[in-house]
Amino acid sequence: MSIRAVNLTHIYGQGTAFEQYALKNVNFEIQDGEFIGLIGHTGSGKSTLIQHLNGLLKATSGELYYNGENIYAHGYDMKGLRSKVGLVFQYPEHQLFEADVFSDVCFGPKNLNLSQGEIESRAKEALNLVGLDESFYKQSPFELSGGQKRRVAIAGVLAMKPDVLILDEPTAGLDPKGRDEILGQIEKLHREQGLTIILVSHSMEDMARYADRLIVMNKGEKMFDDTPRNVFRHYKELEAMGLAAPQITYIVQALRKEGIPVEEDLITVEEARDAILRLIGK
């Protein structure tokens, strides 16, 4: 089970004066159950890339395989793909529209020709997974807090029972606690349900904490594809691409420059604290 991109290329406005490579020969393979962080500055091609993964955009050239099947092959079941690869857009709460939370989450599965019983049980399960209990079912989605709305929107995608969940900046505009709550829920879905997660974020601190593997996009090309630890070693190159490493990386680098022998690849506050305390025998 995997997603495999082979020389994936997407050109916007091909043949016009505005011709622009949004993706250029991108290759990667994502295995089942991975937690991938996708980073890149605005215009780097990451949003274009995720829209290819569930077939919303078709590559200009190159191939995309889902579980070994070429999704561009004639007669491929695109609708099936879209229910297996769930995409949560930026500001997903703008897409809520039903009168109450429960109906909103039911909307997706309703379009899958399921029985009413199955639809409702999926909606309940999905809401449970994002931590919203029955007291929310009859509430209007528009009266919830920003973080709660976003969880309803994610539940709407989960109710489709996807194997892969792609989230485009799910924490934008949320307060720190709201950010932790959403990311905590996503982490839990990854751990307990074995969902493959592809998370797009500008927060390097969050990436350091949650992702197993980082894919870095720049000008439509894949620049790095490695563990966060190894990617953040290239902090100078990341800066040249308009990105950054977590603050901790900079502190660790500065300590090393001063001749303090801490490990080079520390990326979280906890790791840095433990390394410093170890150094002085505490």
Binding site: P176, K177, E205, I248, I251, R273, L277, K282
Partner: peptide, 17 residues
Amino acid sequence: RLDVPQVTELAFELRQA
């Protein structure tokens, strides 16, 4: 429900220790 910058948090944690 707020946070502190990572630098401040690391300093706080080390101070606690």
